[in-house]
Design a protein around this nucleic acid. Structure first.
Lengths: 215, 215
DNA sequence: TAGATTGTTAATCGATTAACAATC
DNA sequence: TAGATTGTTAATCGATTAACAATC
């Protein structure tokens, strides 16, 4: 199948994982891989890899495998990792601080360029270690309007999440990565992705207990 | 279906989400809910909720709905959130620090009780804000052995992840929540759950771009 | 050519959803 | 009883995997 533009969701979620291992292979001077090697590196079946790739045309060479450089370039394109994407952050708590100092930009063309918290937060009015400016939440709209930013990371307390998300959308944000375990009600054109650390840990414990109980 | 003990993975992953909304309902003095309300709160279909619950017996009352208290108690049991689970943390970088200060224990009976990093890390030998002791990595085994800890959170650089995971398993750890984007090769009795922040953000951007391009 | 590995089809498996009889 | 909502079955949908012809 060539460029049919109907990428299954499960495939879409693996794209970034593929991209990372290709860059890793590149760094290790591995120039050629087969679907089995890719599969092992990301923890899926080799048939899944080939099927995933098939949505984007013929990326490999039969009897041979894939050229790592070619794959890397293709996936960079696919994931728009060719020019920088700027992202904003709301909420400079525990998690917010960690993300503020996270070097997304070291390996990918994305980075946090501004951050927000309540007026009373001690860091508001200053900048992060790396010079990311931190503004009060009521200035979100004005700062977003004078920028290319369309994406937000949300790390505010659950009770504030909906309220802040509304402000973000109002300001023109079209995608939110939320760490607040609250189902956001937003217009359908806004893409939301959730990260739920407590749930991840609790689910791990559940699986461990299942394991214990014999099944 | 009564207690068949064959909980589908998709259902298992929602258990913690259900549990949280029940506790939230409780806090809001809501005593009775129906499957539609639960479904909305966690962002799934009401049929999914009823089907999920059906694996655990008859939790509700036909024509009526569910008793929130009863559900909360049942899920607390199910998720073993009745007695405290102690967890260790390896890697006091950005993410590690955030998790170290994260109040898991405020809402659930799980908490980080010890942390580890390289000998040279400035916090090794001291404790966190909340008094969690921080030890050097080579002391993992001795500290785990004198404890009930079976679960680890791993926030070390990718290149160290496998090495540290091996040490953890050697020390008797049976479950790992890893923030390092590396597929760990471990004995099959060890349960591993991955959190991949870069991938989450990149996937969000991909979906946003898809949205833009019309599909 | 012989060997290897892709790209793709068909089979299987698992998850979601619609529909409704059971029943509170 | 009439109305509501469960628990469950059957239908649908989507994802994974096995198998293999195509072909480098």
């Amino acid at each position: 199948m060539t460029e049919d533009k109907l990428i299954p969701k499960a495939t879409a979620k693996r794209l970034s994982l593929y991209y990372r291992v290709f860059k890793r292979f590149n760094a290790e001077k591995i120039t050629k891989v087969n679907s089995k090697q890719i599969a092992e590196a990301i923890g899926v079946d080799s048939a899944t890899v080939r099927r995933d790739f098939s949505h984007f045309g013929e990326l490999g060479r039969r009897g041979f495998g894939y050229d790592v450089q070619k794959l890397t370039a293709f996936f960079a394109q696919l994931l728009h990792d060719t020019n920088t994407t700027n992202v904003l952050l709301v909420g400079i708590g525990n998690m917010g601080k960690a993300l503020l100092n996270y070097r997304f930009h070291e390996r990918n063309k994305m980075r946090i360029t501004m951050a927000f918290d309540q007026q009373s937060h001690p860091m508001v009015g200053y900048t992060s270690k790396d010079g990311i400016p931190i503004y009060p939440i009521d200035e979100i709209k004005s700062h977003v309007i004078n920028s290319q930013v369309k994406t937000a990371i949300l790390t505010v307390p659950s009770v504030k999440a909906q309220e802040v998300a509304d402000i973000l959308v109002e300001a023109g944000i079209e995608g939110i990565l939320s760490f607040s375990p609250v189902q956001l009600k937003l217009p359908s054109h806004v893409v939301v992705q959730y990260v739920d650390l407590t749930s991840e840990l609790q689910t791990l414990l559940y699986f461990m207990n299942q394991e214990q109980e014999g099944l």
